[in-house]
Simulated assay, not measured.
Amino acid sequence: MTFDPFGDFETEGYLQNSLKLKDPVEVKESEHLSFEASIEDALAFLAKKRSIDYKAVLKTHEILFSGFYPWAGKDRNELIPHLAVFKGSKDDPHHTIFERPDLIKRSIEYALELASNKKRFRDRPGEVMGQLASAHPFLDGNGRTILLIYMELCFRTRFAVDWSKTSKDDYLNALSDEIRNPFKGHLDSYLKPFVIDISNRDEWPGMIGGIKGLDGLDKEGITYANLDNPEVQQLYKAYRAQPLE
């Protein structure tokens, strides 16, 4: 089933894109062209920010995807506050449930707070990425936006993840486990062997453009349900093994 939260796929295409494209391959290609054309602008914006806050996360998404999505830079709470978003069916025991729209901002801010503890961040690099990903702030483009935010946060702690050595499937499996059961070391264990020292951002645009699959949580099996549904409310109550502190 096509992810159609606005209910206007037939007239406006996938997520009201500016070209009104419906074909998934064409959508992904055009969306990624917008991303690649804007990487350097987004990185320059983040490099100039004294501190990374929620507004910076929204602006990064806007810079990256406004060429394709007119709503770029607006989070789910602004666009579809009544819908819960899942990866996989909510009836599947292995589904991933993303943060409630009204708690997205708090979830992102908690991730940024975790990243401010530099020793903990380097020792537990998966916690911050997992928290950012579980927030899933946007209708699309989450993986790539979060990647840039995460890389900038890592740089400010003087380390990086050597993404070229990672495996798409292994990474996404570890990330899904982290989202389902946070702060238990699932993503820390996966990422730590790939942590390296870093001193500049010079090679980032080319490296990021070549990374495949890190946006995999954006589209594959995305479904949604109304937050008023008692079953959905119960899922949220039972879902988090550890609440935000």
Score class of each variant (00 low, 15 high):
Asp92His: 12
Asp92Tyr: 14
Asp92Asn: 15
Pro93Val: 11
His94Lys: 05
His95Glu: 03
His95Phe: 11
Thr96Ile: 15
Ile97Glu: 05
Ile97Gln: 12
Ile97Cys: 08
Phe98Trp: 11
Arg100Gly: 03
Pro101Phe: 10
Pro101Val: 13
Asp102Arg: 01
Asp102Ser: 03
Leu103Lys: 01
Ile104Asn: 00
Ile104Lys: 00
Ile104Trp: 03
Lys105Phe: 06
Arg106Ser: 14
Arg106Asn: 13
Ser107Met: 06
Ser107Ile: 02
Ser107Asn: 07
Ile108Asp: 02
Glu109Tyr: 01
Tyr110Arg: 05
Tyr110Trp: 10
Tyr110Val: 04
Tyr110Pro: 03
Tyr110Ser: 06
Leu112His: 08
Glu113Pro: 06
Glu113Gly: 07
Leu114His: 07
Leu114Ile: 08
Leu114Met: 12
Leu114Asn: 06
Leu114Cys: 07
Ala115Thr: 02
Ser116Met: 00
Ser116Ile: 00
Ser116His: 02
Asn117Phe: 14
Lys118Arg: 15
Lys118Asp: 11
Lys118Glu: 15
Lys119Trp: 11
Lys119Ser: 14
Lys119Met: 12
Arg120Glu: 15
Arg120Gly: 05
Phe121Thr: 09
Phe121Arg: 03
Arg122Ala: 10
Arg122Glu: 15
Arg122Met: 14
Asp123Asn: 14
Asp123Leu: 15
Arg124Asn: 05
Pro125Ala: 01
Gly126Glu: 08
Gly126Trp: 12
Gly126Lys: 02
Gly126Val: 09
Glu127Ser: 04
Met129Pro: 09
Met129Glu: 15
Leu132Ile: 13
Leu132Arg: 05
Leu132Asp: 12
Ala133Gly: 03
Ser134Arg: 14
Ser134Trp: 07
Ala135Met: 13
Ala135Pro: 13
Ala135Arg: 09
Ala135Leu: 13
His136Arg: 01
His136Gly: 03
Pro137Cys: 13
Pro137Gly: 12
Phe138Thr: 12
Leu139Pro: 12
Asp140Gly: 05
Asp140Ala: 00
Gly141Ser: 15
Gly141Glu: 14
Gly141Asn: 14
Gly141His: 15
Gly141Arg: 03
Asn142Val: 06
Asn142Thr: 06
Gly143His: 09
Gly143Leu: 12
Arg144Lys: 03
Arg144Phe: 10
Ile146Gln: 08
Ile146Phe: 08
Leu147Met: 13
Leu148Asn: 01
Ile149Gln: 02
Ile149Asn: 01
Tyr150Asn: 01
Tyr150Lys: 00
Met151Gln: 06
Leu153Ile: 10
Cys154Pro: 07
Cys154Lys: 01
Phe155Ser: 00
Thr157His: 10
Ala160Asp: 04
Val161Pro: 14
Val161Lys: 00
Val161Thr: 14
Val161Met: 02
Asp162Gly: 11
Trp163Leu: 12
Ser164Ile: 05
Lys165Gly: 07
Lys165His: 07
Thr166Met: 00
Ser167Cys: 10
Ser167Thr: 10
Ser167Ile: 08
Ser167Lys: 10
Asp170Met: 11
Asp170Ser: 13
Tyr171Ser: 00
Tyr171Cys: 01
Tyr171Met: 01
Leu172Gln: 06
